[in-house]
Design a protein around this nucleic acid. Sequence first.
DNA 1: ACATATTCCTGGGGGC
DNA 2: TGCCCCCAGGAATATG
Length: 297
Amino acid sequence: MPELPEVETVRRTLEGALLGRVVERVEHLAPHLLWPASVSPLEQEVVGRPVQGVGRRGKFLWLELGGRSGRTERVLLVHLRMTGRLLFVPEGECWPQAAAGQGPIGSTAVADGRHVHAVLRLRGGGHLVFHDVRKFGRLGVFPPEALHSLLPTGLDPLLDPLDGQVLRRRADGRRMALKALLLRQDIVAGVGNIYADEVLHRARLHPAQPADSLSAPQWEALATALRAVLSEAVALGGTTLWDYRDARGRPGRFGRFLAVYGRWGQACRHCGTPIARTRLAGRTTCLCPRCQGGGWV
DNA sequence: ACATATTCCTGGGGGC
DNA sequence: TGCCCCCAGGAATATG
């Protein structure tokens, strides 16, 4: 599922493909896709505007759309949630095939274009396609000054300065389990279920450990693990377990370096102990009982 | 103020 | 083979 590294990979792919391109037409727009607060009608708000930039914060992604003033006059804000894909389809390719992606995983059941919920046709050829099997993804147009109120307030580990002290201040004495803390977008923005488990394993911290029980070195280890794991994942184009594809239909390559997520029953790469699976904060949670020991439930 | 449950949605897998 | 049920989860919302 797209978390920070996957969204950042999509952002980079789109930046390379869309800068300077002008939206010519909007097609196949499904009403359920729209954020209720989106400026409408969407087509009127985006047509004729050039893409001036592609931004990201946490798991949110946006296209900066220009206008007569030369400045960014609108943003097209996107959240992919569980199975959303933003796909750039160059001139000459057709979008149902591009949505299917390549490779062995997730390449079935989406080849017919059933799950395409919006298409932005670009002047001079090519499309931007929003594809989403589970329809959780959202998209909307907003004035750029509205962006700050829509984005998550948490620290983005790859955009904001982050160390142990900053993280501890953000946690603000909360007693909640570390896993639940990492999933909160108003504390750390961009971490989802996979990277929460990976980061905690890297930091040698138990997912159930209460946040208010961490020592200063443990906060430091957590901050370091957040920056390290997320940037390593970005460098490999993110993780594809099932559905994720970048904006050119390519799967991520970080999956084979996962330490714990999806590896229950297999040996911990660090100590050989079988990886355990449990349920925490309502989520499947994977950990090494030895590396991340400490007696927490 | 915190924690847990529910909702949205579909495809895939297990069980019978 | 074909049902039925459950599971996966990001984030908003509701309830305890």
